[in-house]
Write a protein that binds this DNA or RNA. Sequence first.
RNA 1: GGCGGCAUAGCCAAGUGGUAAGGCGACGGUCUGCAAAACCGUUACUCCCCGGUUCGAAUCCGGGUGCCGCCUCCA
Length: 477
Amino acid sequence: MPLRVYDTLKQKKTDFVPIHPGKVGMYVCGMTVQDKPHMGHMLAFVSGDMIRRYLMYLGFDVVYVQNFTDIDDKIIDRATKEGVDYRVVVERNIEAYHRIAREVNILPATHYPYATHHIPEIIAMVETLIAKGHAYAVDGDVYFRVRTKPDYGKLSKRDIDDLISGSRVEVGEKKEDPLDFALWKASKPGEPAWDSPWGKGRPGWHIECSAMAVKILGETVDFHGGGEDLIFPHHENELAQSECATGKEFVRSWMHNGLLNLRGQKMSKSTGHFFAMEDVLKEFRGGVVRFYLLSTHFRSQMEFSRERLENARAALERLENACRSMDERLGRLGSGPSVSTPAGRKLVEAAREAKTRFLEAMDDDFNSAGAIGHLFDLIKTYNVLLDQDEASVAQSREGLEAVWSALTEFDRILGLFKNGLPRTQEDIPADVQKLVADRNKAKQEKNFQLADEIRRQLNDQGFVILDTHSGSTVRRR
RNA sequence: GGCGGCAUAGCCAAGUGGUAAGGCGACGGUCUGCAAAACCGUUACUCCCCGGUUCGAAUCCGGGUGCCGCCUCCA
């Protein structure tokens, strides 16, 4: 089955055909780094990462670009307020982004272009647009002449004449038409500025993405993604500029994720209505956050709440427990010959089936939520077989390995675990192991008071006791 | 007002024509010195409402109702 991808512009799913066979160019709009990353950003970046991982899984050579817009009015405002250079604000937030991205296991992008590092490319594109009559300079500003792009509005499905009533002209702007938007803005004294043919200034908001995408990925890119709130005006303008500058189709498939709501309202930096990622991560591991974000289709709008993260944590633990259970049994089997057992054969079949369904779901517009459902089908089959005939499962290395390897593949795509599937062999400190041994002894001697005391002690150190037939083991909480 | 989207069990959530995945929770059970954990089982005769198309619809069409997003800060 071919990979089907929904495109915001065409408003339908189509079979994915790469521009260059075997290769995919993907551009995801990153942050304007005026503030710290929040959960809403993570929805966009984790979705993009999952998509990228799947494309890689399918064997594509993926060039993944995620920009940092490191100059704009809000950044300047923030720096002024703090009395620091704008770069201080920028670097702090970029560093925070990378720290959090590692925590939620987002693969590093192939390129992280910064707007301020591409001023020559931006100026060149603006000059091209002026030369072609799509843009004009006025008193150090340069504006894009929207009326010269007949299909302007095609991405956001807006009618150019309806937009006029809603458009604004800021004081001091000298646009020919209220719809026109800035490609280059003259700077005021004291503001960060770059030399240009139009005098000192800085790039307008949308142009950096056009210039950097074209430079790194070429005039037409396979995928361009970001939050739904970027469709208008950001992506609409990006599209207009790029296509006018190059004369080529800019993007094959636009992919927009639904927005993350908090108490029914969109999370947003400007309103302060958001959960900062660093706070969320104090309470929930990156894997939990990731599981939560991937358990709904990325185009759907999602609601954020502690309860939902707790739900995700419980679900993820179910998966982790099954992994540990398999790992333990595989460990006991050692490297002896595999015995073919009824349960083992069922596991092999179940793993094959789960893999087929998992990939089908992923092929259908990267439906990670559906795929996760099929993953849990496999977990359930494993647990049921274990419950029905433990010996038959435990003797079948073939069956255990089939399931293990299917889960490993799934996680290459989902990226839930930074260090591979959870295993039983954890590094338990010697003093903790000693306490476990002491407690086992106490239990044997029916000294339950001491046993309970040790359990409390271990709990305080962050370990939970797992009592089984074959003695007690311990695990990090 | 214009445009886009959504409505599936207590909660979350897949499913776009063939008779309701999965997760959480709850309840019952297994195990256990107790507990925790873990595991098993049960948990939507039905998919917001009303019509229509069809042998057959959660899925398609028409009309309602409700909710959300965008309409130049935003992932």
